Amino acid sequence: MKTTILDIDFESSIGPWLGRTVKIVDNCFQEAFDAAGIDLTKEQMLILKNLYEQDGINQNELATLTYRDKSSLARLLSKMETKGYVKRLQSEDDKRNNEVFITPNGKEIFQKTRPIIQNIIDVMESDIDQNDKLLMIQLLKKIQQNFKLETTNK
């Protein structure tokens, strides 16, 4: 029996370009936080941002908002609790759920990241006009929707 080998031109697909770009952005955040003496990862910064905007959110809702599974979010929150950035309290409405709060220390750290975040956004978007930026966002949303459709059709 003869085996057919599919010739896949992965380099010409969107996937590796998205992956490389995400890694570059992640590295920029980490280098900038380290240079500023801020003990934080990009993932932790995103948690702080969400809590800064919506403090006391249910842990399961936070997992959904940050595109994380519940167990990886629980590990991340444990590290952040150790650093004194967040605290979890058992929900009074449902004892099976935790509500997550940003601490004063977490707010202070998040405030320190704001100019760093803005600088990275400025670098990322330099020489990209508003129309191209909007098109990029639209295309990325379409890719996300394609994957949502794929998982719902299984």
Rank of each mutant, 00 (worst) to 15 (best):
T4W: 02
T4H: 09
L6S: 09
D9E: 13
E11Y: 10
E11I: 03
E11S: 12
S12F: 04
S13C: 09
I14P: 01
G15E: 05
G15C: 06
G19L: 04
V22M: 13
K23C: 10
I24M: 04
V25Y: 03
D26I: 07
N27G: 02
N27P: 00
Q30C: 03
Q30S: 11
Q30L: 10
E31H: 06
E31N: 07
D34Y: 04
A35S: 08
A36H: 04
A36T: 02
I38C: 05
D39Q: 09
Q44V: 04
Q44G: 07
M45G: 01
I47A: 15
I47H: 03
K49E: 11
N50M: 10
N50K: 12
L51H: 07
L51E: 05
Y52P: 00
Q54G: 06
N60L: 08
E61F: 10
L62V: 03
L62C: 04
A63R: 00
A63G: 14
L65H: 14
L65W: 05
T66H: 05
D69T: 03
D69I: 03
S71L: 07
S72F: 07
L73I: 03
L73N: 00
A74H: 05
A74T: 08
R75Y: 13
R75F: 12
S78Y: 14
K79M: 09
M80W: 05
V86M: 06
K87C: 08
R88P: 02
R88T: 07
R88C: 08
D94M: 01
F101C: 11
F101D: 09
I102Q: 01
T103N: 09
P104W: 06
N105D: 11
K107M: 13
E108T: 13
I109V: 15
I109A: 04
F110E: 01
Q111A: 15
R114K: 12
R114N: 02
P115A: 04
P115E: 04
I116N: 00
I120K: 00
D122K: 04
E125P: 00
E125L: 15
N131F: 14
N131A: 15
N131W: 12
D132M: 12
D132H: 12
K133R: 14
K133H: 11
Q138I: 02
L139K: 11
L140T: 13
K142C: 14
K142R: 13
I143G: 05
I143Y: 11
Q144I: 12
Q144W: 05
Q145E: 15
F147I: 11
L149Q: 13
T151R: 13
T152F: 10
T152V: 11
N153W: 03
K154S: 13
